[in-house]
Design a protein around this nucleic acid. Structure first.
Lengths: 201, 201
DNA sequence: GACCGGGGATGACAAATGTCATCGTGAAGC
DNA sequence: GCTTCACGATGACATTTGTCATCCCCGGTC
């Protein structure tokens, strides 16, 4: 039996996926979690063969959880499941030690198939997505530019961001300006959207 | 047997939910769709007892689909399923003739339960969400304010919006200004976010 | 030692944004 | 008939945002 831990914040989706997997006669869901921290705790307790992690979760996201899990349980394979096939997500997931990267758009059968392939030592990545991630190149933003852009994403004014990050307003403007240039955007809103679409935040 | 049509754009979620429902011995999924138009076509063909519609779908969204379905098949009950429990969504879903409004956060068992209750003539709404929708009041934005705000949501400049909506730049600024005031926001970005959170766009 | 890149800051300037008063139109509503 | 309100527009004005040049400090690295 392949022992699986499933982390997904939406209860209905989590329940449905668990049912789906339990119907496979070589797969058994031995633990469920609604956020990253819970997933880590459950995995350490149940020592599964595979951890299925959603990226978009409150608190600790799936990619960060993957990195922690890699340290705690090096033998546990990690399958990342996400709504958004963003190039930066894929890149970071791979760096965090994931063995597979699935988008929820794909058919339901692929989930069990991916789990089996991962356990057989394969890596499972949508070829189109892999190509997109490679052609998009790495995140061009410096860490600080990324911070400032992320802090601007919620509609905060430059003054707000300056206070929150303990910077001068001029510095915030400078970082935003270079982030806008690097994302080929026309203003900060477009810059935020491009960065999010690429998975750079 | 309760005959159900399921519309949900994410293949993996759709498959899992269909499996979940088919396990119930009084429920049968007789059709699946990945967007609103497809859902309508499938429903007209299969004449189900209940249509389960996701709101967030490409093309025709679940609420619009509900309204069309209400006309085409007045006897078909409608269950709305959504990721976001936004007050405006609930309000519009009810106006479109939905019998139930479920958020994906809730446990998986509630789905089948809601379908049975709806078929028994009940309406199913999370009480907390209903209270939020009532206390939030109706959408304060005028139709045109809503248009302009929606057109600004993707980072377009005022000039872009003016061209797209065939308005003068000054008019766009005026509508944005009043939308900002009505949403108690400090700038257009906050206004967009508030409006989206409330389900006003 | 010279050079570069990232972080942080300042000042000046242009462009975009937000606010306000004001005007005109037409459709409802009392 | 009068009022109200959404729609559309103009002009003036203050504020915010975006750009650029320039400076300092520091840690690498050639």
């Amino acid at each position: 039996m392949i022992r699986v831990v499933l982390a997904e914040d939406q209860g209905m989706v989590r329940g449905a996926l668990a049912t789906l997997l339990n119907l496979e006669d070589d797969i058994e869901v031995v633990g469920e979690a609604a956020d990253g921290d819970e997933a880590l705790a459950v995995a350490v307790r149940t020592r599964p063969d595979v951890a299925l992690l959603d990226i978009e979760m409150p608190g600790k996201d799936g990619i960060t959880t993957a990195a922690s899990l890699r340290e705690a349980l090096p033998d546990c394979r990690i399958v990342i499941l996400t709504t958004f096939g963003r190039p930066g997500y894929l890149r970071r997931a791979m760096e965090a030690g994931a063995s597979a990267f699935l988008v929820k758009d794909s058919p339901a059968q692929e989930l069990a198939a991916a789990i089996r392939r991962v356990l057989a030592g394969e890596r499972v990545i949508d070829p189109a997505l892999a190509a997109a991630a490679l052609s998009a190149g790495p995140n061009p933003l410096s860490p600080r530019e990324r911070d400032v852009l992320a802090a601007s994403a919620d509609g905060s004014t430059i003054g707000d961001v300056a206070v929150r990050l303990h910077l001068s307003e001029g510095t915030v403007r400078n970082y935003l300006s270079s982030a806008i240039r690097k994302t080929s955007a026309r203003n900060r809103i477009e810059a935020v959207q491009t960065a999010q679409r690429q998975g750079w935040l």
